[in-house]
């Protein structure tokens, strides 16, 4: 009973914050509502008994991805009034795209048929003695090893691509060379002269 109540609380807050993400006037508020949404999704995962997924969601999305979102959105210098007027102009196109996506989803849902093995797997009892993390690791690093590695590679390529795209080589900037600084000895930098009084150098 109490699980149901908690489920409805999480689900309701999740839906409300999802609506607020697209309807909030201020983009920073939108991102903050997005974070609230992530939190509630993590809560739903915990209710399902998938605590590993819940915390990975919290660490990756809330702890890293959304921070960067917020970072970028905060630095945007935009007038919200202009943004709103501009949005009204492209609203019909947006509506069209949205409708298309929705109809595709509905069609997909009607034609949906899960693989028969999955049906069978769903009926298996959940082994309580194996923790979530172990269970995930056991399949991820054996059966799905190749897919796992390939997804890692794709992310690596994306990262390198992002760095290459934003890298600006500026020859006129003098950067700190820490190795050179450490390699510098007193003998290279100064010369000690004995000066007899009254003569000068």
């Amino acid at each position: 009973m109490i699980q149901d109540v908690i489920f409805y609380i999480f689900a309701a807050v999740l839906l409300v914050s999802a609506v607020m993400v697209i309807s909030a006037r201020n983009p920073v508020h939108s991102v903050l509502f997005l974070i609230l949404g992530f939190f509630n999704a993590a809560g739903l995962f915990i209710l399902l008994g998938a605590e590993f997924l819940a915390f990975i969601l919290a660490i990756v999305y809330v702890g890293a991805v959304a921070v960067l979102f917020l970072f970028v959105v905060m630095m945007l210098d935009i007038s919200f009034g202009d943004l709103r007027r501009g949005a009204m102009k492209i609203a019909p196109i947006g509506l069209l795209v949205g409708l298309m996506l929705l109809s595709q989803l509905v069609m997909l849902y009607m034609a949906w048929d899960a693989a028969p093995e999955m049906r069978a797997a769903l009926e298996l009892p959940i082994d309580e003695s194996v923790t979530n993390t172990e269970a995930l690791g056991a399949v991820l690093y054996t059966d799905y090893f190749l897919a796992f590695q390939i997804s890692g590679m794709i992310l690596l390529v994306a990262m390198i691509g992002a760095i290459v795209l934003t890298l600006r080589v500026r020859p006129d900037v003098r950067r700190q060379q820490v190795a050179d600084q450490f390699a510098r000895r007193p003998e290279d930098a100064m010369e000690v002269k004995k000066v007899t009084s009254g003569t000068g150098l």
């Binding site: 605590e51 590993f52 915390f55 660490i59 809330v62 702890g63 890293a64 923790t131």
Partner: peptide, 14 residues
């Protein structure tokens, strides 16, 4: 909890 260290890491990153 089973994933205590993840919980700590998540909270500290927030």
């Amino acid at each position: 909890i089973n994933v205590g260290i993840l919980y700590l890491f998540a909270v500290s990153s927030m």
